[in-house]
């Protein structure tokens, strides 16, 4: 009994339970749900969305928010495609360049927030507009079509069975991120700053460095997501990242992240992404209006924050 109650308190337990129930339910109504083709589509969506969610999660961990995740992703995506088409760079170099742009954009966010002391909301709203404007200014809203074959084949390659190669980077990033937040000093610093930056500063952590590092990581993750989308779509669309805002908050919140900071879980966020992907896919399978996907996503955020609040109260009641 004790073990079950301990399990139920783990962050990933609720989302995992919800995932399993959702899979069983949907499979029982629609036999094609777990077909190889459908699983491949699910995994492709999860691969990109997980990175988008992590980019927001790492900022939620320090108790801030990053509205510019989508803009950074889009900017990195067109940098990647543009470097290959216009400058003729080989794909690996273009990748390095795109990731560098992502890190740089994230660091600018972090530095501005720390120097000015203005809330992350206002700063990232401003940089959202700046990065998106640079993106549109460079591309003039026209996509880059000159993507080399190597990138295209990476985007459509299959790892094993129904598993596309695109999930490989996401799996690696997930493990690294989990290890970082669990074991590495920088990960612990991020969580410490998120739960109480004053206490963190008093215990000798440089809050500035931690905040800037977190934003740099967020930029890097958004850039990887942007590059993966380019590989999947096979063109460098300027509109990549435009619809990431709701998604980036939905998954961490469904995974139990507390917006006040200091408490996030990589695995639970991943499960949040999986739940969103499964439900979106189910709406398509049951031929429910695709317009309603937005409604469901919004309702899921509301339900998740409501549940998180209930859960946060539970331990208090138990101890009394």
């Amino acid at each position: 009994m004790l073990q079950i109650s301990r399990l139920s308190r783990a962050d990933w337990f609720g989302p995992l339970l919800a995932t399993i129930i959702a899979i069983v339910l949907i499979q029982s109504f629609s036999a094609t749900f777990l077909s190889a083709y459908n699983i491949e589509i699910l995994l492709l969506a999860i691969a990109v969305n997980a990175l988008v969610a992590y980019a927001q999660m790492i900022i939620i961990a320090i108790g801030q928010m990053n509205l510019s995740v989508g803009a950074i992703g889009g900017l990195a995506a067109i940098s990647f495609a543009g470097a290959m088409e216009v400058w003729g760079l080989p794909a690996p170099l273009a990748l390095v360049f795109a990731l560098f742009i992502g890190v740089l954009a994230g660091m600018v966010n972090g530095i501005l927030i720390r120097i000015t002391g203005i809330s992350a909301f206002v700063i990232t709203l401003a940089t959202l507009s700046i990065y998106k404007g640079i993106n549109l200014g460079i591309t003039e809203a026209q996509p880059f079509y000159g993507i080399p074959e190597s990138v295209k084949s990476f985007g459509s390659a299959i790892l094993v069975g129904p598993i596309p190669l695109l999930v490989a980077p996401t799996i690696v990033v997930t493990l690294l991120l989990w290890f970082m937040l669990r074991r590495l000093p920088i990960g612990r610093f991020i969580l410490a700053v998120g739960s109480n930056d004053h206490a963190a500063a008093l215990s000798g952590i440089s809050v500035s460095k931690t905040v800037i590092a977190a934003h740099a990581i967020s930029g890097l993750l958004a850039a990887i997501a942007g590059v993966l989308v380019v590989a999947r779509l096979q063109i460098g669309q300027p509109s990549i990242g435009d619809d990431w805002l709701i998604l980036s908050f939905a998954a961490p919140v469904i995974g139990g992240a507390i917006l006040a900071g200091g408490h996030v879980s990589t695995m639970a966020t991943m499960l949040g992404v999986v739940i969103v992907a499964i439900i979106t896919q189910a709406l398509v399978l049951f031929s429910i209006d695709p317009f309603l996907v937005q409604v469901v996503l919004g309702a899921m955020i509301l339900a998740a924050v409501g549940l998180n609040r209930l859960r946060a109260r539970q331990p208090l009641k138990g101890s009394m």
Binding site: I246, G298, L302, V305
Partner: peptide, 30 residues
């Protein structure tokens, strides 16, 4: 919703923005 849940209006209006717009698009068929 903000008053009843005691949550910050950022997250509430982020969710309702998606809900309002989704319902509107669904009802008007765009």
């Amino acid at each position: 919703t903000v008053v009843r849940t005691g949550l910050h209006s950022f997250i509430i209006t982020l969710a309702t923005m998606s809900i309002f717009f989704g319902v509107m698009i669904f009802l008007t068929r765009a």
